[in-house]
């Protein structure tokens, strides 16, 4: 058998026939591939890659955008507007046209019309991500949108900016209701800082300085005060939030090593001196991380300053 194989020498006819059959076979495989490509496979693969790029976009969104725009794109008060809502995205729908899936705009973006932007929504999103905004568009936000594209000094490559754009636009199939999101003020109206409703007392003003000096704003945010951190809970309405928290069953069951506070002031004091007594459930970018807040504030903030800080935080209702 082995000898037969190694001494195999096809006859002339067999050679011509095999060669011819193989050649025709190859031609037909090529033809079939071509026909399949131009009829179905190319557009199928187009959809595949569209999906894969959105997956990538989701990853980069989580890493880069969620800390200001929120994991669901609803925006964070005082930091960034929502970008997954109907006001911004309008609404699109996939329709079958001649066997091809096409995107159709069924509601236009109100925000784009408001801004008088001349390009498409994709252009707008892409350009804002890439180059950022040169100036603060309103006093509602702590900082203007930073540039993200590497050629403008950001951390992302061209393709990553494209992928994030695809991901954001993908919300337009089922945009979040405007009511659930932080909406930006109309253009031109947000230029001047909003007046504080109640003027601060001297103690509260001093407390605000303690807040800034102790670096609380590296992780927390109070609308309009210093830079805006997004690691810990937003403190813009901390008194109200504290009142709600101490009334909740979650707080009563989970507070540990410390007695359960009965007043919002107590809760604020407890949270600064013993941060691990209770971990708040909701932070701007998702569940609050445990053990992140420094535990030595009771040593580093003098008692007098501490009282002023609590007085300041307690007026944020």
């Amino acid at each position: 058998m082995l000898k037969k194989i190694v001494t195999f020498r096809p006859s002339f006819t067999l050679r011509i026939l095999t060669g011819l059959v193989a050649f025709l076979f190859m031609l037909s495989v090529c033809t079939l591939t071509y026909v399949a490509d131009i009829t179905t496979t190319l557009s199928e693969r187009d959809l595949q890659f569209r999906g894969r790029l959105i997956e990538q976009g989701a990853r980069y969104y989580k890493d880069q955008c969620a800390r200001c725009h929120g994991p669901e794109g609803k925006g964070i008060d005082g930091i960034a507007p929502g970008i997954s809502n109907e006001n911004f995205l309008g609404q699109v729908e996939f329709r079958e046209v001649d066997g091809q899936r096409v995107i159709q705009q069924i509601k236009p973006s109100k925000r784009l019309a408001e801004l008088g932007y001349k390009g498409t929504l994709r252009d707008y999103i892409r350009s804002v991500i890439a180059s950022g905004l040169p100036i603060k568009s309103s006093a509602d936000w702590a900082d203007p949108h930073p540039p993200f594209l590497d050629s403008y000094g950001g951390p992302l490559r061209d393709d990553q900016v494209d992928n994030i754009t695809s991901f954001v636009i993908n919300w337009a199939q089922a945009p979040k209701p405007d009511g659930e999101s932080i909406l930006p003020p109309p253009p031109g109206s947000g230029g001047a800082p909003k007046p504080t409703a109640v003027p601060l007392t001297a103690d509260q003003e001093a407390g605000k300085q303690v807040y800034l000096k102790a670096g609380c704003n590296a992780c927390h945010a109070i609308k309009g005060v210093g830079s805006q951190g997004a690691v810990g809970p937003n403190l813009s309405k901390i008194y109200t939030l504290s009142a709600e928290t101490i009334a909740s069953a979650d707080y009563k069951s989970k507070v540990k090593d410390q007695p359960a506070s009965t007043t919002p002031e107590d809760f604020i004091k407890q949270s600064i001196h013993y941060p691990n007594a209770y971990i708040a459930p909701q932070c701007p970018t998702g569940a609050c991380p445990a053990g992140v807040m420094p535990q030595n504030f009771k040593d580093t903030i003098p008692a007098a300053d501490f009282d002023k800080l609590v007085a300041y935080l307690s007026m944020l209702k």
Partner: peptide, 24 residues
Amino acid sequence: LPDIATNEIMYAAVTFAVLAILSA
């Protein structure tokens, strides 16, 4: 001519066909 040439063309054609089928 013609034996080796046809032989080589046959092997080339079969190789091309196998590669094409595998790729497709």
